[in-house]
Amino acid sequence: MLRVENLSVNYGHVKAVKEISFEIKSGEIVSILGANGAGKTSALFGVSAVVKSKGKVFYKDKDISGFTTYQRVEKGIILCPENRRVFSGLSVEENLKMGSYLRGNYQKNIETAYRMFPILKERKKQAAGSLSGGEQQMLAVARALMSDPELLMLDEPSLGLAPVIVDQIFKALVELKRSGMSILLVEQNALKSLKISDRAYILETGRIVHSDDAKTLLNDEKVKKSYLGI
């Protein structure tokens, strides 16, 4: 579904991502794991063209390397970025409306979103900035889902959240996969994400140092110890 070849992301002279290649097949959950500063966020930014990058990105075998972010969104490649990035001064409802700015049926999807995260319905008139961290994260995920993603990329969806909410979000991801969505998951919580993933790539200082089936990785003591810290 998505194939990335030799993707590099530089910030000035700092090389955040160094010629990495990876792939997500249709209907898969793929994790990118790695420590802080390994280049995970930059890799996602590269895939969705939020920052400039070198290398090729193919989506459904079509070269989309020259596409801007919104053109990629149009194709159904949706990023739910790190630190939520909700529009704090806009109401919850307006945030969700922006989620379906380019794609997705607002009327239909908002029902789904509210069903998935009922708390958002209660707060729909409230400014997003006044929500708690967990609620904002739900809003960010819900906003991403508003556009009917074909490929959903989530950057640290569990960051700073209570375990109950993390479970809730991961359960939602499994459901989404069942409905046919492909998911690229970036997480520091390696154990949790491997459990729901099909495959995973391990990133270290901008390079992919290991990749395998999630199950194999979960049983590989050496990998777990040296890269995942579990």
């Binding site: 919104y70 970025p81 945030n95 409306k97 922006m98």
Partner: peptide
């Protein structure tokens, strides 16, 4: 209006507005 809300969204978070598909 949708564009109007998009303008406000853009003013609050550039990355956020990019990833929802705002040009």
């Amino acid at each position: 209006t949708k564009v109007g809300i998009a303008i406000r969204a853009r003013s609050q978070d550039e990355v956020g507005s990019k990833v929802v598909g705002i040009n």
